[in-house]
Design a protein around this nucleic acid. Structure first.
Lengths: 144, 144
DNA sequence: TCAAAATAGGATAAAATTATCCGAATTAAA
DNA sequence: TTTAATTCGGATAATTTTATCCTATTTTGA
């Protein structure tokens, strides 16, 4: 569904959000450990998220990654997915046609419509806050 | 969403079905031309579909690919997707966790539930017959 | 000011996916 | 029986994705 990079990016963002509530900046190392991801590869993804202003970074001692507390509830899953994978997953053609729309639909265009729309609205209506709270309460998990 | 291989596989299957209604066996070459795919790569995918009994092949002159007419309506999109991509797309964890279920859900498990289920039922309830008929009637297209 | 702790970023490698090439095997018609 | 038209299957190459390594740069505290 998502690329590995995107999976890591989502999990990392949740962990960062969780700590930002506690005013704690987290290091690459602790992120990779927490979400079970390769460190150097995760670094690239985090850089990407920083460039897209999904998260903030701070170099140097006591540096790390964070998200402004007030912004956590405004960061949608769609922002993260878009930054890493682009929007092809919910706006591209399911069969890879260059032009695929109501006037020139691919064979599964209409069949896919509701799936795509449900996915899109899910991504656009899910924010980091709720995801972080579920991790905090033990209702969901970042690894295993 | 799907791999390129899977996209080609779906389109090829539709084209084969369409011709099988007319009792015409289609060659690799005409398939690749019709669905705009690289010939040799398409050959590999068709071999895969043959091995999974989604389509039949006949070697030699006047050979090619076909699907038994009576079976066309029984071939579901899920069969094709499964043969090529496996079932991870609608049964695997959205964030790649090894174990992700009601008892140990990943952060997006519940959010994804309806999307996954909709996708799954769509794939399991869409058969080649309807897809082929829409191509035939000009209601949908295999390329561009 | 210096040392330690971090992220940033470029270069490279490994693995997976996508794509190509070619000879072998099979089939039907001439 | 030969020939032409096919699929099959193995080897290989190109591209993309995933992953690693190393050095530069930044930041803070001692």
């Amino acid at each position: 569904m998502f690329s590995k990079a995107c999976e890591y990016g989502i999990k990392a963002s949740i962990f960062i959000a969780l700590n930002s509530y506690k005013n704690v900046r987290v290091s690459l190392k602790s992120i990779a450990k927490e979400i079970n991801s390769p460190e150097a590869f995760t670094a690239k993804i985090l850089q990407d998220l920083v460039r897209h202003h999904v998260i903030n970074s701070m170099k140097g001692a006591y540096g790390g990654f964070e998200i402004e507390k007030e912004l956590i509830s405004t960061v949608k899953l769609s922002h993260i997915v878009n930054a890493i994978d682009g929007d092809a997953i919910y706006s591209g053609c399911g069969l890879g046609l260059h032009t695929c729309d109501e006037n020139h639909p691919c064979p599964v265009h209409h069949k896919f419509k509701s799936v795509r729309e449900e996915l899109k609205s899910m991504l656009e209506n899910t924010n980091l806050e709720e995801l972080a709270l579920n991790i905090k309460s033990g209702a969901s998990f970042l690894k295993v």
